[in-house]
Design a protein around this nucleic acid. Structure first.
Lengths: 150, 150
DNA sequence: ACACACCCTGTAGCCACTACAGGGTCAAGA
DNA sequence: TCTTGACCCTGTAGTGGCTACAGGGTGTGT
C-alpha cells in the first residue's frame, strides 16, 4: 500500500506519516522502483497505535516509550502504568487550571454589558489591574499539556 | 527603569519583554546613551495588561485586539465582550475534551495492574486497537486552545 | 585593573505538525 | 501519442509563545 492509502486508512495526513518516519516512530518502509514508500499491515498497526496514543494527547516522547514496550513484549510493564498515571495527572491538573481560568473569565465577562465606550468598559479596566501574587499561575505551568488554544 | 527591573516587576523574562516589543504589543521605549531600553510607568502598565491576559490564556492576537480598545477609549466596547465570550467558549470546549480524555485514560489504566509482561499488558493491547470513527476526536480539534501538554 | 552583573542584537530551538516549492511517476482519456 | 490530473518524492520554512544561546558592549564595586 502507498502512503496515500495508509493516510486514508489511519485518518492522518501524508505529511504526518513522513514526519513520524523522520522521528523514528515508524520504521522506514520498502520502496518501489519509482521510490514510492510501500507499507504493509504491520506499518498500519503501528500507526494505529501511535494515533490512538495521540488521541489521548500523549507526546511523541511518551509514545516512543510505549512503543519500546510494544517492541519488547518480554519486559515487565509497570513503567507503562507509571506513564499512564503521570499522563493522567497532567490531564487532571490541566482541567483544574482551565476551570480556574473559566471562573476568572466568567467574572471578567460580568463586568461589562458591551454598551459602554472602551474607556468605561469594566473588562478593560479589570485587565489593566496588575496581577496579584497568587492570582492565576501562568497558563500551563507545571503540567506538560498545552493551554486553551489547541 | 531598565529591562531587568521591568522583568522583575512584571514577573516575566527579559527575553519575553523584547519578544513583545518585536511583536508590536509593547511600544519600543527610549534608549539610553549606551543603547539600553528605558521604560516608564506606562510601559509597566501595558505589560501588566498583557500578562493579565496571558494568565487568562488568551493568544497574543486576542491581546492585540484588546489593546486596540485600550488605545482607543472612545470606541464602543461590544467587540471586547464578544472576544471574551469566544475565548470562554474555547476554554469550556477544551475542558470538555480533556474530561473525555481523562475518562478514556482512567478506563485504559484499569486494564493492567503493572505486574504483567508487556506482551500481556492490557494497556498496550488496548492501544493497539485501531480507533473507532467516533472514538476521540484528534486532541485540540475545533478549539484553538492547546491540548494537555502546556 | 579586574570581576561580575547587566544590557545589546541575532539566531536557533521547542512541539507536532502543516504548507509549500520544485520536481518525478503513473493511469486514464482524447 | 499526448495530455491531464492524481499521486509521489525531497527539502525547507512556518505556526505560537516563548527560551536559550553566541558573541559582543556597558556599568558598578573593590
Amino acid at each position: 500500500m502507498r502512503i496515500g492509502e495508509l493516510a486514508r486508512q489511519s485518518g492522518c495526513g501524508v505529511e504526518t506519516i513522513r514526519y513520524y518516519e523522520r522521528e523514528g516512530l515508524l520504521p522506514a518502509p520498502a520502496r518501489s522502483a519509482a521510490n514510492y514508500r510501500q507499507y504493509d499491515q504491520r506499518h498500519a498497526e503501528r500507526l494505529a497505535f501511535i494515533r490512538h496514543c495521540r488521541a489521548l494527547d500523549m507526546t511523541l516522547e511518551e509514545i516512543r516509550t510505549l512503543l519500546a514496550y510494544h517492541d519488547h513484549p518480554e519486559r515487565p510493564c509497570h513503567e507503562v502504568n507509571g506513564l499512564i498515571d503521570a499522563h493522567l495527572a497532567h490531564v487532571a491538573a490541566r482541567i483544574r487550571q482551565l476551570q480556574a481560568l473559566e471562573t476568572a473569565l466568567v467574572a471578567l465577562r460580568a463586568r461589562c454589558n458591551g454598551e459602554a465606550e472602551a474607556e468605561a468598559c469594566g473588562i478593560l479596566r479589570e485587565l489593566s489591574r496588575p496581577l496579584g501574587e497568587d492570582e492565576l499561575p501562568a497558563a500551563g505551568e507545571g503540567a506538560h499539556l498545552p493551554g486553551a488554544h489547541g
